[in-house]
């Protein structure tokens, strides 16, 4: 199995506080890994660091993505090389239609990769197919990015963008929180459609219920800035039963 993402001894300090403290994690192509852990454990920090956010005071350790030093890549370069982050709190961009935004993003990535850009017609054709796959109405193509979206709509829109941008590594930061049962199914379907033997998913979640749909290969428990336990999907059920405290103490 080919390694997609390899994090070694990651230490991150933000505003005098150590958020990640010696975190190591490996994700292979074809793997769906769940990252679970109590609030404030550093899950979202990890996600944003992977995507390239540089709001930290200091950072140590190494991250290799597709065999290359991730720290040497700009945010957009990471994106164009197939790293996608579904945001926990998707950001509003008033006045920019969702379809315009995704088209510009997709073509910016294609440009960075030296591929041919899609024209308006090719783009729309693709967008319609993807929306249909996710049982989403095309109405939202015209709506401004995340403006006035319900919680569920925002998360579905993230999955739609993921499916349009067609990444290699998808990091989903609590994409399941705040979703009703139907929306949860859509999100799970989106991730399953995306997943293949060449790709990997890192699914950050608090809940068993998304994992029931996804059938993860690996479950990591993150506490106090490091991975305290790694197991298969039974670990998630154990967690449901015993709570984080129980697992952490046993570890």
């Amino acid at each position: 199995m080919e390694v997609l993402l390899e994090i070694e001894d990651l230490e991150v300090e933000i505003e005098e506080r150590k958020i990640l403290d010696g975190l190591s994690l490996t994700l292979n192509r074809g793997e769906i890994a769940a990252l679970m852990g109590p609030n404030g454990a550093g899950k979202s920090t990890l996600a944003s660091i992977l995507a390239g956010k540089d709001n930290y005071k200091s950072i140590k350790g190494s991250i290799r993505y597709l065999g290359k030093d991730l720290f040497k890549m700009s945010i957009e370069e990471r994106a164009s090389k197939g790293l996608f982050l579904a945001f926990q709190y998707p950001v509003e961009i008033p006045g920019v239609a969702m379809s315009t935004f995704v088209k510009i993003a997709l073509n910016a990535q294609k440009r960075l990769r030296g591929e041919k850009e899609l024209d308006a017609i090719e783009f729309l054709k693709l967008a319609k197919i993807k929306a249909k796959e996710l049982h989403m109405s095309e109405d939202f193509f015209k709506r401004p990015v995340n403006v006035g979206f319900s919680g569920g709509e925002k998360k579905k829109a993230e999955v739609f963008q993921m499916s349009m941008l067609d990444p290699i590594l998808a990091i989903l930061d609590e994409t399941d929180s705040g979703l009703d049962v139907d929306a949860l199914k859509v999100v799970a379907e989106g991730i399953k459609n995306f997943q293949s033997k060449d790709r990997g998913s890192l699914v950050i979640t608090h809940y068993q219920r998304l994992l029931n749909h996804l059938d993860p290969d690996t479950v990591h428990i993150l506490a106090d800035g490091k991975i305290v336990k790694t197991g298969d999907k039974t670990l998630a059920s154990l967690l449901e039963e015993k709570g984080y405290q129980g697992i952490i103490e046993a570890a």
Binding site: L85, P94, A108, L165
Partner: peptide, 27 residues
Amino acid sequence: DEQLFYCQQRGLDSEEAVAIIVNGFCR
């Protein structure tokens, strides 16, 4: 910064990100 980061994560460089946000603002 969140808007810029969001746009950049989708593949836009910082100037393209400002441009799209400004265009939205002026739409």
